[in-house]
Amino acid sequence: MNQSDFLKVVLPFKDKVFRLAKRLLVSTEEAEDATQELYFKLWRNRKKIADYKNVEAFAMTMTKNYCYDRLKSKQASNLTLVHSNYKEKETSLDKKMEYQDSVNQVHKLIENLPEQQKIIIQLRDVEQYDFEEICKMVDMKPTAVRVALSRARKTIRQELIKRHNYGVS
C-alpha cells in the first residue's frame, strides 16, 4: 500500500475522526493533535489496514481508545472549554440570540453526559453511522448501544425542557 492509496482510504473520514476527538477532548487543539497522532498510527500500521474490511470503523475505534488514553494521562489535565461557531440563521436578533444560546446549551449538555453516551450520540446523531457500525466501533452489544443512545437523547431533552422552564441555571 503506497502513500496515495493510503490517503485515498483514510482521508475521507478525517473530519469524523476530528469531531469525535473534539467531542471527547473538548479543546480544538487537543483534537487536532489527536487526529494527527491517529494518522501517524494508521500510517505505521498501513500493512495491516489492507486486511481490514472496514477501515473507518477501525479508525474510529482507535480514535476512541486514543482519546480515552489522553483523558487518563495527566498531560491532558489542562483542557479548556472552547465554543464552536455555529451557523447564523436568518431570524430576528432576539430570537436568534435565544436560539443560539439553546443550540450552545445542547453542546454543554452533551459535555456533561458520560463518556460512552457522548461517543454514541456523536457517532449516531452527528455522524449518522448505522447501529451495526457503532457496535463495532465501541465494542458493545446492539441493545446496550440503543439503551445508551436512548438515555442520552432523553437526558438532553429533559435538561433542555428544565432550563426553559426555570430559566438558565
Partner: peptide, 27 residues
C-alpha cells in the same frame, strides 16, 4: 417539540466542523 429543533440544529451545525490542518504522515 422545540427542544428537538435545538438538538437537530446543533447536530447539523457540529457536522460542519472540519479538520483544516494538513495531515503529516511522518512524525
Amino acid at each position: 417539540l422545540q427542544e428537538y429543533s435545538y438538538m437537530f440544529n446543533y447536530f447539523t451545525a457540529v457536522k460542519d466542523e472540519t479538520y483544516t490542518k494538513t495531515i503529516k504522515l511522518e512524525p
